[in-house]
């Protein structure tokens, strides 16, 4: 169980404080599939980065299974079971796909070639074409995105955060992607999967949906309820004030 209490994140822009997340409270329950959605710039990625430890909050706390992890390093959180698939996957010169999967699986696991292939085929990549590729700019956006997802699969931890995993993934593979999440939920007991997404098809399979806008939770509840609420409102996104004034 992940508990977020009063989480605030502010940045300074040209001498002025800008509040990106505003005293956010949120519970992510075990064994659930939670989808976070909401308008661009609402603060979804910021929230995920705060949970993974990539950035530190201005105030508030993050509690994982009863332990306060707010001040913990990225590494310590990772070792306690937080996994994070970046919205923009990072490229590495020289590191190969197999190296990255091996690192993801951890020293204790000593990931074998065969297992690495299983993860790659899970994300729809033909293992023999990719396993020795460098994780660099020569891979396409969609390929990088799939490898990013595979690293989270290889970790197989309790809390997995995916930031727009479907972005750049073609329609045909989309089906398989939802199947991956279903499998993860089945295979890791009490695992929580959090997906940031704008896709209705992902929203449809959610147990819980959280809508974040302007750094606050706008709506939260059971998947089906929220989904019909969102799709029912025409002004899900506020139009720009200046434009309407013209």
């Amino acid at each position: 169980m992940l508990q977020i209490r009063g989480l605030t994140y502010e940045v300074e822009e040209m001498g002025e404080k800008k509040r990106i997340l505003d005293e956010l409270d949120l519970d992510i329950k075990d064994g659930k599939f939670t989808v976070i959605t909401g308008p661009n710039g609402g603060g979804k990625s910021t929230l995920a980065k705060l949970v993974a430890g990539l950035i530190k909050p201005t105030s508030g706390s993050i509690i994982l299974d009863g332990e306060d992890i707010t001040e913990m390093s990225i590494t310590d959180r990772a070792r306690r079971g937080v996994s994070f698939a970046f919205q923009q996957p990072v490229k590495f010169k020289g590191l190969q796909v197999f190296d990255l999967l091996k690192l993801a699986a951890g020293k204790e696991t000593d990931l074998k070639f065969h297992d690495a292939c299983t993860y790659l085929s899970e994300v729809g990549l033909c293992a023999k074409d990719y396993i020795n590729r460098e994780v660099n700019g020569s891979l396409s956006g969609g390929e990088l995105k799939r490898i990013e997802i595979a690293t989270v699969l290889a970790r197989g931890t309790k809390l997995s955060l995916f930031d727009e995993p479907e972005a750049g993934i073609d329609l045909w593979s989309f089906q398989n992607l939802t199947r991956i999440f279903e499998n993860m939920r089945k295979n890791i007991t009490d695992s929580s999967i959090v997906i940031i997404s704008h896709q209705e098809r992902i929203l449809k399979i959610a147990d819980e949906i959280v809508v974040i806008a302007n750094g606050k939770i706008k709506q939260q509840g059971e998947g089906t309820d929220i989904l019909s609420a969102i799709t029912g409102t025409p002004d899900a996104v506020m139009p720009c004030v200046k434009l309407t004034e013209v």
Binding site: T75, A78, L95
Partner: peptide, 27 residues
């Protein structure tokens, strides 16, 4: 690159281990 260190740390590596992996791969 800071984001390379960050990514490997989210896989459970310490900052030093991440640095070593990045350098080894690069060379």
């Amino acid at each position: 690159a800071g984001e390379q260190l960050d990514k490997l740390m989210t896989l459970g590596l310490t900052a030093e281990e991440a640095e070593e992996q990045i350098i080894n791969g690069f060379l």
